[in-house]
């Protein structure tokens, strides 16, 4: 009985009692404020990175005797002697990342082709996550692997006189294993996104599986593949623990992958791991290296995103 009367009064609301105006909702406003804050934390992170790296780098470059030109072209990094040339750190970074790509690019691409074009759906479903486990292994474990497995292997193959205990080749090769799943996974996505109609067209002309994969599917996915490689390169350049453990401590201007040479990230981690006093030139110089590293990786990432966007526009 009572429900009926309630319903009736609710239904016959008098026009004066009904207000459709905005009511203040303080809780909603508060929540919105919090969510907005969360949303822009990432902006502040970026600004923080740019500000801190930039500030310390400015201090570094305003030190007497230090010039940007000398920093970019100097072949010696000896803070005690006032030599701050990034080239030795850069060449070894290029050596390790180059080695890594030498492993990861062909193997990753081949694995991607296999997964996308050859494997049955069920096999692909099992293999892809297994490969991705490799990407989840902490990098310090890869550093251990480089030092205890890869280095002895290289020394056994090429001789102990040729291969130093710490060397960029070992670190680079193991880093290749680390980024292999990154390449294969992204490349596989790109290959799978190629429409089946193209494959059928090629098969219909009497193409073999290999011809379809290499001459039709690969070219159609080329921007996705380029993006995969770029992301992998950027990852390799920034990778730290493997090189810190296996590539050697101490900058050295060399192109010989069997010699010890410290990379940019390896140098940052070694110096900051020691007792480091703020406001020293050592401290500032680390941030200059960090800024360089940040700019290089960010530029590569931006290019790869551009490539992906280009790809999306083309396939739509």
């Amino acid at each position: 009985m009572s429900t009926i009367t309630n319903n009736a009064s609710g239904g016959n609301l008098s026009p004066e009692a009904l207000s459709l105006k905005h009511r203040p909702r303080p809780v909603e406003a508060l929540i919105y404020g919090f969510l907005f804050f969360c949303g822009i934390v990432s902006i502040f992170t970026t600004l923080g990175i740019v500000y801190e790296l930039g500030k310390e780098s400015l201090l570094f470059f305003s030190t007497p005797g230090v010039t940007i030109w000398g920093f970019l072209t100097g072949t010696r990094w000896q803070p005690q002697a006032g030599n701050f040339g990034i080239l030795p750190l850069l060449t070894s970074t290029l050596l390790t990342s180059g080695m890594a790509m030498l492993v990861a690019a062909p193997l990753g691409l081949a694995a991607a082709i296999y997964l996308s074009e050859y494997a049955t759906p069920s096999l692909r479903k099992a293999l892809k996550p297994t490969l991705e486990v490799l990407a989840g292994v902490p990098t310090v474990v890869y550093g251990y692997f480089a030092l205890t497995f890869m280095t002895p292997l290289l020394r056994a193959i090429f001789g102990k006189d040729t291969v130093e205990i710490y060397n960029t080749a070992s670190a680079g090769l193991v880093m290749g294993i680390l980024i292999l799943p990154l390449v294969s996974s992204m490349a596989e996505d790109a290959l799978s996104a190629v429409p089946n109609a193209l494959r059928e067209a090629a098969y219909g002309l009497g193409a073999t599986k290999l011809e379809v994969a290499v001459q039709v599917v690969l070219p159609a996915a080329v921007s996705g593949l380029a993006a995969a490689f770029l992301v992998a390169i950027s990852r390799a350049i920034g990778e730290t623990m493997i090189v810190a453990i296996a590539a050697g401590a101490g900058p050295r201007f060399t192109f010989n992958p069997f010699q010890a040479a410290e990379t940019m990230s390896g140098h940052i981690v070694r110096i900051s791991g020691g007792d480091l006093s703020y406001n020293s030139i050592d401290y500032n110089s680390l941030f200059a290296i960090g800024l360089f590293l940040f700019i290089v990786t960010a530029a590569i990432n931006l290019v790869s995103q551009q490539v992906v966007r280009h790809l999306k526009r083309n396939t739509q």
């Binding site: 992301v231 990230s265 940052i268 960090g290 590293l293 940040f294 960010a298 990432n301 995103q305």
Partner: peptide
């Protein structure tokens, strides 16, 4: 882009 920044930069 932040997801692609090397972890050592976060350390700095």
């Amino acid at each position: 882009n932040l997801a692609g920044v090397p972890s050592i930069i976060y350390g700095m």
